[in-house]
Amino acid sequence: MGLAYRIATELVAAVGVGGLIGYGIDRWLETRPWCMIVFTLLGFAAGMLNIFRITRGYGYAAGYRAQDETKSGDNAP
């Protein structure tokens, strides 16, 4: 039950952060609306990555470099 509450907002948060970054870059470089579209898609990918890691029990830091080689197998996203 805790898992359901954890992953429900994960995808939305990542998409929101991606969209906000894209919106900020658009306002800065005046490239509206292309950056927003690209970063929203990237945010969707990040959200899927997060959900995949949580459900596989990796925690959040699966992209981090392994200290020893025995753990590197777990680290492939």
Partner: peptide, 22 residues
């Protein structure tokens, strides 16, 4: 991959706070 990982890292506080608030 680097932008995806950065967005994934930055989305942590957002999801943490939105979950509790919502």
């Amino acid at each position: 991959l680097i932008p995806i990982e950065i967005i994934s890292y930055l989305s942590r506080p957002v999801s943490l706070s939105v979950r509790l608030f919502a």
